[in-house]
Design a protein around this nucleic acid. Structure first.
Lengths: 211, 211
DNA sequence: AAGTGTGAAGTATTTCACAGCG
DNA sequence: CGCTGTGAAATACTTCACACTT
């Protein structure tokens, strides 16, 4: 089982390597990928070992081979179908962002309460009413969900998703979801992120503990 | 210097405690806050020690006092003025989300290239053209920036922000920013987050290493 | 009896540093 | 020689477990 941090870096490496490949490069050294991704060379080499990607002392790593190794670790064998719940600004941003980005991922359905949004197609994704959630995700065989509703609704939505058979959730809400074991949850908390920036930015006016 | 993970948890505790207080509770035990935030009680107690928040064996922790202790750690003494660059769906989501949420944070200016957006006020925040970025952030004394532009522009925008005097950046782009020492960057990578969910969700069809 | 505060132990993750190879 | 692959050291973070308080 590969640790979470490592998976995050592999995902980033892959996107960088896609670009590197577009630029026509076929080999890259660990210190180069380290610079491009903001890591140390030793870290990059360890990560590549984890996905069994062999390097060559004289030429470095074969870019296509790296991408293949990362693919075979990160991607499941089948295309993953994802449901998005909450078609507000954030939801639309997520849909738009992924439009045709990763071939193995597909937003197969979106849900909202707002009747002005229901039955429209937004960024290539059909929007259903939340009341249809259970039926649609079962029918469409959806196993992954993204929650972009207001905080107050998150718990309820998570329950609906899990009840419909979803096994993995990306939750943009700060609400800690109570989900049964076996369901994986990843949280993105935008407020925390901004507050981290505020704290760690030395604005020269905070009494930070000296050493 | 408090570690990043701890700051993230404190930010979350504070939001939970705001709610707890609204419900009229005045005291809370570490195991209760642990449950509400998805942590272990010992972790919560350590975190509260870090911000010098005293507890009482019989009643637990005084909610108002906890909030005060967290405030004095997370918030700077002054209101923080923030610039947002990129008024697309994601940018609007961030602006909307923070509208009147935290008294010590204010989105003082937004920037975009699109002339249809420039000079409008979106979610309480005036939108300027990107060409005005340098002047405006200097004039408005902005020290923090949020980047919600497409990846390809992120590096350029980061340079502009830093040049204008910004010392802390929240970057929603997967582009690793090359910034001078002394400037803090926090990244939120939505693609990585989804790929983590895909990987860690046991979809029963992946050949995961046993052990 | 039940909860806090915390030294010490346990885990996880990163980095060093160097043998080995092309 | 410069780079990869990797044991071993270093660091960071979490959890245990228990003395102490109410």
């Amino acid at each position: 089982m590969i640790p979470e941090r490592t998976i995050g870096r592999l995902s980033l490496y892959r996107r960088i390597l896609d670009q590197v490949l577009d630029q026509g490069r076929t080999y890259i050294f660990s210190h180069e990928l380290a610079k491009l991704s903001g890591n140390k060379p030793a870290q990059v080499r360890r990560d590549l070992n984890v996905v069994k990607c062999p390097g060559c002392a004289s030429k470095g790593y074969d870019v296509q081979e790296m991408i293949r190794c990362i693919d075979s670790t990160l991607d499941g064998p089948d295309k993953q179908r994802i449901a998005l719940v909450g078609v507000g600004n954030l939801g639309r941003a997520v849909l738009h962002y992924f439009l045709g980005r990763r071939k193995k991922l597909e937003f197969a359905a979106a849900f909202d309460r707002d009747h002005d949004k229901v039955n429209r197609v937004i960024h290539g994704c059909r929007v259903y009413h939340i009341d249809e959630l259970n039926d649609v995700i079962r029918k469409e065989n959806i196993r992954l969900g993204v929650i972009t509703v207001p905080v107050s609704e998150a718990g309820h939505i998570a329950d609906l998703l899990v009840h419909g058979g979803v096994r993995g959730i990306l939750n943009f809400t700060p609400a800690p979801l109570r989900i049964p074991p076996g369901v994986y949850v990843e949280n993105i908390d935008i407020t925390s992120a901004i507050e981290k920036v505020v704290y760690f930015t030395d604005l020269g006016n905070r009494e930070k503990e000296k050493e």
